[in-house]
Design a protein around this nucleic acid. Structure first.
Lengths: 236, 236
DNA sequence: GTATGCTTCAAACATCCGTTTGAAATCTGC
DNA sequence: GCAGATTTCAAACGGATGTTTGAAGCATAC
């Protein structure tokens, strides 16, 4: 019976969540799964293959649902550019749906997602980059149409900030112990995303800072007084 | 002469930047430093001690400057609560200053900072938590006074989002290859922070989302229509 | 010059890693 | 019940890791 396979995948998930890619050991995974070390190699072929299988089974589903929802929204918008909140919803809602389904990830899924995005191991980095480049490009286009007033480079950076807030939060990194002061059990992922989304939406739609040393025309939209960008240059 | 010590620290910096805590090996560090493996143990006492020394020498300076600047701003504000941008400036400007000083970190300092904040290794996590808890608590208070209309829990989360965007961006994680599409050499850290700051300031000051399933009184301030938080519950 | 203390070095150490092995155990189809 | 394929298991393999060792190098002080 290949219920061992399943136990290995679940154990790999838990260990990776705690210790990251390099910190994950076949031995700790096997022990946690109450399986033999050789079983991991028998079923998957090696450590990298096991971890990638474990990630792919979760993230592939996420990627597909994200794309499907994005395309549904775009159909509903009928040629008009998508509202920014819609594109963001296409990113977040499938993740939440999976997190609410114990069969497809459950409570730990979002933390897994965050951990995967910030893990330093080169193996994992190239795996993610290669496997989900299409999805990333697709969403970049969608956001570009949603926020036409944003210069393309500025948009890329802001999406990067959004992904950062998302990944870091979901991964529960928190060396500042900001979350530690919160009763975590009262804070489910749903409420968490309900907090995050207004934050990033406001950030995405924020006025652009004045460009530094660039002759390029500034995008339209109100400016905000920007004490930091200026003060910074006159400080030791 | 203890110029070897210095070479080891620099090499440790570079390797940790590329491969993270667990990925960093005494042998790769020693090779890169053109030193003997035993020299690392002689000068520092072990791998953990070396990496922590390398981090402390950079981050201690940052923490001190951040605290000093925050207190200066608070003195200038004279009992009045600090403007939110000011607290943010006290966070960012010292980091930028260090990044511009080759003697105290140089160009790679900000990437180092980000990598440290998101690294999954338990050793590093507890190191950061223990060593800089005081600074974190200090800034949490300052932001709490700056944004009195934000409920305390909401504030903690938003600061968490800010740290996330900051760390993730500085660490150059980017599995979505958003930055890969940008000519990185034209994007120095100064301009990067000038992009990030308006983003997080807008996020911090964004209207609060309606609370979910909570009888607690909602913080004052305008509400925003929140399609995601609602739509999410009615989707498969 | 020699003695002393600090630093470097190649080599070895025990330990852990991912992987392989070959035999036992288990399931499957008949 | 049995043959054949599939799955598990304890044990071992080669390699890499952090650490230790003891001798060699080197500067400084007398």
């Amino acid at each position: 019976m290949d219920e061992t396979r399943e136990r290995l995948l679940q154990a790999a998930e838990a260990v990776f969540l705690e210790l990251g890619y390099d910190g994950t050991t076949l031995r700790t995974v096997a022990t946690r799964a109450e399986a033999n070390i050789a079983a991991a190699n028998y079923h998957f072929g090696g450590k990298d293959a096991l971890l990638q299988a474990m990630l792919a089974r979760r993230l592939d589903a996420l990627a597909e649902e994200r794309l499907a929802l994005l395309e549904r929204y775009e159909r509903e918008a009928a040629r008009k550019p998508l509202a920014c909140e819609r594109a963001m919803a296409a990113l977040c809602m499938p993740a939440l749906a999976i997190a609410r389904d114990p069969m497809r990830g459950g409570q730990d899924f979002l933390r897994l997602l965050g951990r995967a995005y910030v893990d330093p191991s080169p193996v994992l980095r190239t795996f993610l980059k290669d496997r989900y480049a299409r999805v990333a490009a697709r969403f970049r286009e969608a956001f570009a149409r949603s926020l036409p007033r944003l210069e393309r480079t500025e948009l890329s950076w802001r999406l990067h900030f959004v992904l950062g807030a998302l990944s870091y939060t979901l991964a529960r990194s928190d060396p500042w112990q900001l979350i530690g002061t919160i009763r975590a059990e009262n804070e489910d992922d749903e409420r968490l995303l309900a907090r995050l989304v207004p934050f990033v939406l406001a950030g995405l739609q924020a006025p652009t800072a004045p460009q530094i040393e660039t002759g390029a025309p500034r995008p339209r939209g109100a400016r905000i007084k920007q004490p930091i960008g200026n003060a910074v240059r006159s400080t030791t």
